[in-house]
């Protein structure tokens, strides 16, 4: 077996650029996913609010029940039929964000429901509205419980983002494939790409551990 990493070294700046794009699309998608997830998670708290609950549940059903790649292709190749042409990066961000949002919404809902009902009752009996009680009392406690599963979601998102290379986005995966196209060194290049993904996910999990530690110092000694 002869391994030749020269193409990797020669293409390193391209790979690093790709890594930056991967981080960008992932962070943008995570921001979208958290916003959507928060709204959908709250919308799914009360099945008695039929319409809101129904819309939110349909969203979760679709985005959790279909492949991410199909969702990305629908956005990128499907929408142009309605004359909606989104830039590839935007498609990637929205696709990843909506997909991940369906999982985040379950994280949000689970965390909120895990807060003792007495908290809501105490807040309401002081005269807080439902929204105030949510914002001031429930969510700050729930967020702490969301952090570890959100961390896992973030790491999954980094890895899933490799699929956006199929939308012509020049992410890490795409840059790797470009090098392979001219050098035919698949093994070496994919190993290098895997290693860079590993570095990204490791950094992400370290950051998350730090955040968790910070939040715990913030007084939630429960």
């Amino acid at each position: 077996m002869n391994l030749d990493f020269t193409p990797v070294w020669q293409g390193m700046s391209g790979l690093l650029h790709g890594a930056v794009v991967t981080v960008e699309v992932t962070v943008a998608a995570l921001a979208l996913s958290c916003c959507v997830g928060l709204l959908v998670g709250i919308a799914r708290l009360d099945p008695k609010k039929r319409i809101v609950y129904g819309i939110a549940s349909t969203y979760v059903l679709f985005f959790r029940g279909t492949p991410l790649l199909v969702q990305l292709f629908l956005l990128f190749f499907g929408l142009p039929q309605f004359n909606i042409m989104l830039p590839a990066f935007t498609c990637g961000m929205i696709g990843l964000g909506l997909y991940s949002g369906s999982y985040v919404s379950e994280i949000v809902r689970g965390a909120i429901q895990s807060i003792d009902n007495g908290q809501m009752e105490a807040a309401r009996s002081m005269g807080m509205s439902y929204g105030q009680a949510m914002r001031i009392i429930i969510l700050p406690q729930a967020v702490l419980r969301m952090v570890p599963p959100l961390g896992n979601e973030f790491i999954a998102l980094i890895k899933n983002s490799a699929l956006v290379s199929l939308l012509t986005i020049s992410d890490l995966m795409h840059e790797g494939q470009k090098i392979i196209a001219i050098s035919y060194r698949s093994l070496e290049v994919y190993l290098a790409v895997a290693l860079i993904y590993l570095v990204l996910t490791t950094i992400a999990s370290q950051i998350l551990r730090l955040i968790e530690k910070r939040l715990r110092v913030g007084g939630m000694v429960q």
């Binding site: 007495g118 009752e121 807040a123 700050p140 406690q141 913030g218 007084g219």
Partner: peptide, 9 residues
């Protein structure tokens, strides 16, 4: 309340 329901955060 019997169970206090203080806000732990």
């Amino acid at each position: 309340f019997q169970s206090f329901n203080l806000f732990p955060h």
